[in-house]
Computed example of a mutant assay.
Amino acid sequence: MRSELEEEIAKLSSLARERGAEARRIAARDVVVAEWVRFKCRFGCKGYGKHMSCPPYAPTPAETGRLLTEYSTALLLRFEGVPGHPDLKPDEIPLDFHPFLRDLILWVNSTVHLLEKTAFYDDFPKAFGFGGYPCIYPPRG
């Protein structure tokens, strides 16, 4: 017999698939939080300080790490492609990428919100989702 958590994960994974995303269950302790990301934003992004979900407004790595200790299970979502731009290459993304990637931003954040809201109303009150904006600067090495 499956536990309530297993049933909820199956339900949320199905919802993610319906929205074109892949969900994978992972241990919350396996989520990597790193300081370098915040510095890349601070010193490499023209959008620094312009969005409430980005540094300096986003939680610090230490705050995020402490939050994650309160959870045992996480769902990692994978979104593949850019709506309306199936063959987009990284060097084709304009510097002012937020309007250009509007549909991607809405796809990611609305999917995360739907899963969080569904879990919350299914009696998982600690459900919390981290959405995000796409970043024009992909990590290297």
Rank of each mutant, 00 (worst) to 15 (best):
R2W: 11
S3C: 04
S3H: 09
E4M: 08
L5S: 08
E6V: 09
A10I: 12
L12T: 06
S14A: 13
S14G: 11
L15S: 03
A16V: 08
R17F: 12
E18S: 14
R19S: 05
G20T: 11
A23K: 05
R25N: 06
I26L: 14
D30T: 14
V32Y: 11
E35N: 14
F39Q: 15
R42A: 15
R42Q: 15
F43L: 15
G44T: 12
C45E: 01
G49E: 12
G49M: 12
K50N: 13
K50C: 10
M52Y: 14
A58S: 13
T60D: 06
T60A: 00
T60C: 04
P61T: 05
A62Y: 10
T64C: 02
T64Q: 05
G65L: 08
R66W: 11
L67M: 12
Y71G: 03
L75V: 02
R78G: 00
F79E: 01
V82I: 11
P83I: 04
H85A: 06
D87N: 13
D87F: 12
D87P: 08
K89E: 12
P90M: 05
P90A: 06
D91P: 07
L95S: 11
L104F: 01
W107M: 02
V108S: 08
V108D: 01
S110V: 05
S110E: 14
V112N: 07
H113N: 11
L114H: 03
L114Y: 04
L115G: 01
K117Y: 04
T118N: 04
A119R: 00
D123H: 12
D123F: 10
P125T: 04
F128S: 05
G132Y: 02
P134H: 00
I136H: 00
P138I: 01
G141D: 09
G141V: 09
